[in-house]
């Protein structure tokens, strides 16, 4: 399939332009002197200064990071356990319900998840705040983690675990010393996904956050409702920058690792010949 027709070239060009031009415009206008977002009035970084001085943004960012860190971490533990249990256990009572509950949150509209969790917190008298957001985010993020980890476990060579058992490990030791280190990249990917999902989430956080805790998306949403502002552009640019750098670094690192592994294998095969 290595012949690109003009049609392919055009659709790729237009497609990626469509994906990236809005972002580029957003970034460019974060450096605009004027308060008007759509009219260029000269280069300035003053909006970045505004963002950094805006305590409400900083507080919200701090809450968001804490929530994302804790919910991603708990979700990774629970999601990995769930994926492993589903993969290794045969039939057990309530298996269908269990797998249903793992997959359902992936397709559940956020408004419903948010509403139902809020009603639960009220019913049990739990004050809304950072804790309730963490609980809510953990619940839907663990499902994503479990999907990522399961897809790795599918290709996991079962005999590695059997070898560990054969050499004297208990099941738990085999999991900790063999399975976990090998599936670690998937677990880390799951954590990163859970972390970004939590950072991103507006709807569920809006339902489960109390007046004492506001996350960055909630803050951004309420100011965006009032219209565009260069300050939000600047804040968005910072977020886009961090994410882009993070994703690029991660992909370069993993690419290098793969390349190294290929070289090693090639050398090993040569040694034999």
């Amino acid at each position: 399939m290595n012949r690109l027709s003009w049609f392919n070239v055009v659709s790729l060009t237009l497609g990626f332009a469509f994906l990236y031009i809005p972002m580029v415009i957003l970034v460019i206008f974060s450096f605009n002197e004027s308060k008007l977002v759509t009219v260029w009035a000269g280069f300035s970084t003053k909006w970045y200064g505004e963002v950094i001085r805006n305590e409400a943004f900083l507080d919200a960012a701090w809450v968001t990071l804490r929530v994302a860190f804790f919910s991603a971490t708990i979700a990774t533990v629970l999601g990995t356990m769930a994926a492993y249990a589903m993969m290794r256990r045969g039939a057990f009572v309530g298996r269908t319900l269990f797998s249903g509950m793992i997959y359902a949150p992936l397709v559940m509209p956020e408004v419903i998840t948010g509403l139902s969790l809020l009603l639960l917190f009220i019913a049990i008298g739990l004050d809304r705040g950072v804790l309730t957001i963490i609980l809510a985010h953990t619940t839907f993020a663990m499902c994503y983690v479990s999907v990522v980890v399961s897809s790795r476990l599918v290709s996991f060579d079962n005999s590695l675990e059997e070898a560990a058992l054969d050499l004297g490990c208990t099941r738990f030791q085999a999991f900790m010393s063999v399975t976990l280190p090998i599936i670690a990249p998937a677990v880390i990917a799951g954590w990163l996904l859970a972390f970004t999902l939590s950072l991103d989430d507006l709807v569920i956080a809006s339902f489960t956050a109390g007046p004492s805790a506001t996350t960055l998306p909630i803050k951004i949403f309420s100011s965006v409702r009032l219209g565009v502002s260069p300050e939000i552009n600047a804040l968005s640019t910072i977020i886009i920058g961090i994410v882009t750098v993070g994703v690029l670094v991660a992909s370069v690192l993993s690419k290098r690792q793969i390349a190294q592994a290929r070289r090693d294998e090639a050398m090993a095969d040569q040694a034999e010949g």
């Binding site: 990626f16 994906l19 990236y20 809005p22 972002m23 415009i25 957003l26 206008f29 977002v37 759509t38 970004t196 950072l199 991103d200 507006l202 998306p217 951004i220 949403f221 965006v224 219209g227 565009v228 939000i232 968005s236 977020i239 886009i240 994410v243 882009t244 993070g246 994703v247 992909s251």
Partner: peptide, 27 residues
């Protein structure tokens, strides 16, 4: 990578970016 990258960026920001483009006085 280019397709996946926007997925990692905030959903809210991606929607927000269109307000400035589609507005009456927008780009």
């Amino acid at each position: 990578m280019l397709v996946i990258l926007p997925f990692w960026t905030s959903f809210l920001i991606r929607v927000y970016a269109w307000i400035g483009i589609l507005a009456n006085e927008g780009f």
